[in-house]
């Protein structure tokens, strides 16, 4: 690349991006989520998915699951930057452990009649989605699974009268007896 006349060196970056799922255990205190999100926006990192909830209320611990993309060097930076925050206990790269399970829940509203309605129900059954609300012209399906499965289900519902989708984002946990 021809360097422009600038006070900064502008680097060509060719490293391929990777997608990683990070589990972050934090002290549940005011502003902790803002800190984590602010880190991502402030340093130009990507958030593909973010899931937060208190997981141990006595200890005031929350677990944040973040799916992010970046070059290997950026992913490493993200983990270190998260880890050095004062209320962060641990950061675990679930993708690197290769032994983690990821799930997402989605509620999918489909509106239609006749053959479309029957087809939607048939597909829902094949995907093990449950009907949690129904009217004579609509369904709300509840589906859990990994991100790919949910994307696939939503794509199939689109021509059958997809109205809207609400997704939780990814939650992840390691296999085996050990905790994070």
């Amino acid at each position: 690349m021809n360097q422009p006349a600038s006070a900064y060196f502008i680097e060509d970056r060719h490293d391929p991006n990777e997608t990683h799922t990070l589990a972050v255990l934090v002290q549940n205190e005011p502003g902790v989520l803002a800190r984590v999100i602010g880190l991502f926006s402030g340093r130009g990192y990507n958030i593909e998915s973010l899931t937060v909830s208190e997981t141990e209320s006595q200890k005031h611990l929350s677990r944040i699951t973040i799916v992010t993309t970046g070059t290997p060097m950026v992913i490493e930076q993200i983990k270190h930057q998260l880890d050095r925050m004062i209320p962060v206990y641990r950061v675990v790269d679930m993708t690197l452990t290769k032994r983690s399970i990821e799930r997402e829940l989605a509620m999918v509203k489909v509106r239609g009649q006749g053959e479309h309605r029957v087809e939607a129900l048939r597909l829902a059954d094949a995907f093990r989605a449950r009907v949690i609300d129904a009217t004579t012209e609509s369904f709300v399906f509840e589906i859990t699974g990994n991100t790919d499965k949910i994307n696939q289900f939503i794509d199939l519902m689109r021509p059958l009268g997809l109205v809207e989708v609400s997704r939780t984002g990814v939650a992840a946990i390691g296999r085996g007896p050990e905790g994070m």
Partner: peptide
């Protein structure tokens, strides 16, 4: 030494 394009950073 400073030959190159122009850009504002």
């Amino acid at each position: 030494a400073f030959a190159g394009g122009k850009a504002l950073v």
